[in-house]
Design a protein around this nucleic acid. Structure first.
Lengths: 238, 238
DNA sequence: TATCACAACTTGTATATACAAGTTAATATA
DNA sequence: TATATTAACTTGTATATACAAGTTGTGATA
């Protein structure tokens, strides 16, 4: 909360409502307080409230109905392909277990999953982390993330077990994902995938390569997610 | 243009700017006229202009930079997984050829690709169409679309060859896609896919099942897209 | 010619106000 | 008790105005 006061009021309201939804204070189907009510309780005017709500609409948290209210959609689901969420918020914490296969370590870049790197990114090296996501005791996602080594104190000593990388970036470094690019393709399982997902050679695997753009100018990070979609496809709303 | 006059001014402006971008009047990197300039030329006020521009930002057409201007990003790319675009706008018309394998015909529903159907949807039956999308002479997408038979005069006689279904819905029926749900998974090629994509058994295929929600209340349509991603993965920004 | 300061532009954020259009609740009447 | 009408709520759309903060261009000066 150290720098919350410096945020514009519409962002404060947006954050609070978003957190209320993701924390379950509002459930799917609930109706948020009306715009007028939010004006009163937050001491702002209606255009400010509407700007916060519009962003919640844009990100899939709520849906508005003229004359009725703002209806909670619940948390947008689907691994980041459809929203800015990371895997954790896509699947939901209660069903997802994150296992750190390789803790973050500082290294030089391999390629950034096919995305071109800028020269200063190459210079600073990156933290590389490998994780396995398990849903109901079943390995479903294997992902590799590379984060450039730019002003990330104590990054490699943080606890990533069962925590969202997006949340860690956001709360510890004030770095928020604001967009990015991604590529999707179907491949067959290589040996690492066969091992992690316990599947046979030839098993189809979904691969998602992503370049995340952030609020910190010139700071991108990269991830590659392999998904065994036999039991859990990727699902999302848009 | 028959009902353009009944649209609110911010939507008219949004539509015009969107079309200017998709038609290539503005190219990636160009800067749109300033907000003040758009106020003058469209005889509206700045909040109205900003609402139109905000929607363009939201959909990935432009990016705003404080003090500088609204920078054109070009058309958002990536098959619908990341935006409301259909396949045609995702890949770009010049590289994409759409071949109608089975013209739209009225039929009863098979299941809607795993999405539950409402009883009135079952009652009215649907138009089913199968298409093959070819990029640089190479079949890449095979898709099946089912559209409920609700007030769609002359639907089955329209020309879908090399045209966007989204555009046809939009211009002929004033039905716009406003969101939806989708599922993604990796499978191996079945016999139809082996034939259409000219691939061997066991070849990995990306499957995308979608339920489109529209501006017409209670009107959804459904599609299932199979992608051979060997040469063309799905790409998008978000 | 280069540099600095300032003006003039841009977008970002916000208040205030008003009316349109949709939904729901309350009240009157049959 | 049921129905219809109206009031009171909701979101949708818009104008007007003001100041903050970022970027760029212009003019003055060294």
């Amino acid at each position: 909360m150290t720098n919350k006061k410096s945020l514009p009021p519409y962002k404060i309201l947006y954050e609070q409502l978003r957190r209320h939804i993701t924390d379950g204070l509002y459930e799917k189907g609930d109706i948020l307080p009306s715009e007028n009510e939010l004006c009163t309780t937050h001491n702002v005017t209606r255009p400010t409230v509407r700007k916060a709500l519009d962003r919640l609409v844009h990100e899939g948290y709520i849906r508005k109905k003229q004359g009725k209210g703002s209806i909670v959609q619940g948390q947008p689901q689907g691994v980041g392909i459809l929203s800015l969420s990371g895997t954790t918020s896509a699947i939901g914490k209660e069903n997802l277990e994150t296992k750190i296969i390789i803790k973050p370590y500082l290294t030089t870049w391999e390629d950034a999953f096919g995305f071109p790197l800028l020269s200063y990114e190459k210079e600073v090296g990156c933290y590389r982390i490998e994780r396995l996501r398990i849903i109901n005791k079943q390995p479903v996602f294997y992902d590799i993330t590379m984060v450039p080594n730019i002003n990330l104190p104590r990054f490699s000593t943080r606890n990533f077990e069962n925590r969202s990388l997006f949340e860690i970036m956001r709360t510890n470094y004030q770095i928020e994902v604001i967009g990015g690019e991604q590529k999707l393709m179907a491949i067959t399982a290589n040996e690492a995938m066969q091992q992690y997902f316990n599947v046979k050679p030839g098993h189809p695997i979904l691969r998602l390569d992503r370049k995340m753009e952030t609020t910190k100018e010139g700071f991108f990070f990269y991830s590659q997610v392999f998904c065994n979609t036999t039991d859990y496809g990727l699902y999302g709303t848009f």
